[in-house]
Design a protein around this nucleic acid. Structure first.
Length: 224
DNA sequence: TGCCAGGCCGGGT
DNA sequence: ACCCGGCATGGC
C-alpha cells in the first residue's frame, strides 16, 4: 500500500480574483499562447495533449523547417510524412491522424479559412470542434481562447489537481464542473481567462506536481 | 531508473 | 454509465 499525500484542510472559499492576483504577483504575465500564428496555436494544442511542451517545441520546429506550418501546406502532406515530422511530440501516429481530422473539418465546412472558422462564434464553434475526432474539451477550449480569442475558460490537469487538492471540488469532478466553478466566480474576459490558465499551469509546474508537491512555497497556500 | 508531461478515444464491463 | 488500456517521445 503506497503512502498517499493528503491535501491541507480547506480554510475558506477562495476569492478567485485574489488567487489570480497572488499568482500574478509571484510570476507576472505569462503571454500565452507560445505560438506566432493562430494555426501554430491550433497545431500546438493538439500536439501538447498529455505531452511536455519542450517536446512539442521540437515538433513545431520540424514543421517550420519543412515549411508546412500552414493549413494549405500541411494538407498536402501524407499522414506518414506528417507523423515523421511531429515524432518528438510523442503519440505521433495518433496526432497525425487528429491533425488530419481537424484539417478535413477546416477545409470542409469552412474552405480552409481560419478567419471564417473563428467567425462562427463561440458556442457553435466549440460544438463543432468537439465533433472532430481527437479534439476534446481542453483542446477545443485552448483553440477557442488562444487561437480565436474567444472567452472560453481552459481546464487542464493542473487546474483540477491544484484546486481539488484544496477541496474546491472533488478530484473526480468532470471537465464541465471544474470549468463552471471558475466561470461562475470570475468576470468573463479573454485577457483574464488567457492569463489565468497560463498562471495555473506555471504554478502547477513549479509547486503542484503529482509527486513531490511543494505546498510550503506555493503562492496559493494561504488562500485555502 | 522510473515517473511524468498543458488528453482523448474505443472497447469492455 | 463508468473504467481502463493504448498511444510514445524526451527530460529530470
Amino acid at each position: 500500500m503506497k503512502k498517499k499525500w493528503t491535501p491541507p484542510a480547506v480554510k475558506q472559499v477562495p476569492d478567485l480574483m485574489e488567487v489570480y492576483e497572488a499568482m500574478y504577483a509571484a510570476f507576472g504575465p505569462q503571454h500565452w499562447w507560445p505560438g506566432e500564428t493562430p494555426f501554430e496555436v491550433i497545431i500546438g494544442a493538439i500536439l501538447t495533449q498529455n505531452t511536455a511542451w519542450t517536446n512539442v517545441e521540437k515538433a513545431i520546429a520540424n514543421l517550420k523547417k519543412a515549411g508546412v506550418l500552414s493549413p494549405d501546406a500541411m494538407r498536402k502532406l501524407a499522414e506518414k510524412e506528417l507523423a515523421a515530422l511531429i515524432r518528438p511530440a510523442g503519440y505521433f501516429n495518433i496526432k497525425a491522424r487528429r491533425i488530419g481530422a481537424f484539417l478535413d473539418y477546416l477545409f470542409g465546412p469552412h474552405g480552409g479559412d481560419l478567419d471564417a472558422l473563428f467567425a462562427v462564434g463561440l458556442k457553435r464553434l466549440r460544438h463543432e470542434l468537439l465533433e472532430v475526432k481527437g479534439i476534446g474539451p481542453e483542446t477545443a477550449d485552448s483553440i477557442l481562447l488562444y487561437a480565436a480569442n474567444l472567452p472560453s475558460f481552459v481546464v487542464d490537469a493542473y487546474t483540477k489537481r491544484i484546486f481539488s487538492r484544496h477541496g474546491c471540488f472533488g478530484d473526480d469532478a468532470t471537465y464541465h464542473e471544474v470549468q463552471d466553478y471558475f466561470v461562475k466566480r470570475l468576470p468573463m474576459g479573454v485577457a483574464l481567462y488567457n492569463d489565468y490558465h497560463a498562471l495555473i499551469v506555471k504554478t502547477g509546474k513549479d509547486y503542484c506536481r503529482p509527486s513531490r508537491p511543494d505546498c510550503e512555497r506555493c503562492p496559493l497556500i494561504n488562500f485555502f
